[in-house]
């Protein structure tokens, strides 16, 4: 019979809450995830705007005036910066998730993320057109 071997593996605990402080790449990931909070907040603001619109011209005018306040402008700048960061970091990852193979070769990464930017621009143009910007 084989000699008895005592095993007593040691488990090194990892922090459960602040795990992302362990490495810069985890913090970059959290920054990407965190940026979506601003996108969510912006969406909520749009919903509030819709509600004000439904309530009549006075409520709507009040909403527009509130948008011009310094606080609202600062919020918009933050929301713009964070949503740009969110979109750019995600678009950069799209070639990983959806590789396109034509024959023996894969379509270059920049073509795939480029197509996403093109789609983004197109949708933005349509929205601006619907909003009567042209």
């Amino acid at each position: 019979m084989a000699e008895q071997v005592t095993r007593k593996p040691y488990v090194r605990e990892v922090p459960r809450m602040l795990w992302f402080l362990r490495h810069p790449r985890y913090m970059r990931y959290m920054a990407r995830e965190f940026s979506c909070l601003f996108i969510g907040a912006y969406t909520l603001m749009l919903v509030v705007g819709l509600k004000r619109l439904a309530e009549g011209p006075d409520a709507w005018a009040g909403f527009l005036a509130a948008l011009g306040s310094p606080g609202a402008i600062v919020f918009h700048l933050f929301a713009l910066a964070f949503s740009a960061y969110h979109s750019i970091t995600w678009f950069r990852l799209t070639p990983k998730a959806m590789p396109v193979q034509i024959g023996d070769t894969f379509v270059a990464d920049r073509v795939i993320s480029g197509a996403h930017y093109a789609g983004w621009a197109l949708v933005s143009l349509v929205v601006l057109w619907l909003a009567g910007a042209f």
Partner: peptide, 24 residues
């Protein structure tokens, strides 16, 4: 959750994060 750390450390450039997103 697509942290992407796996692909950054993989010594053989397998890019496991890519495989996982494709499976999703």
């Amino acid at each position: 959750s697509f942290t992407g750390a796996c692909s950054e450390v993989c010594p053989e450039h397998v890019d496991p994060a890519a495989a996982l997103q494709q499976v999703k």
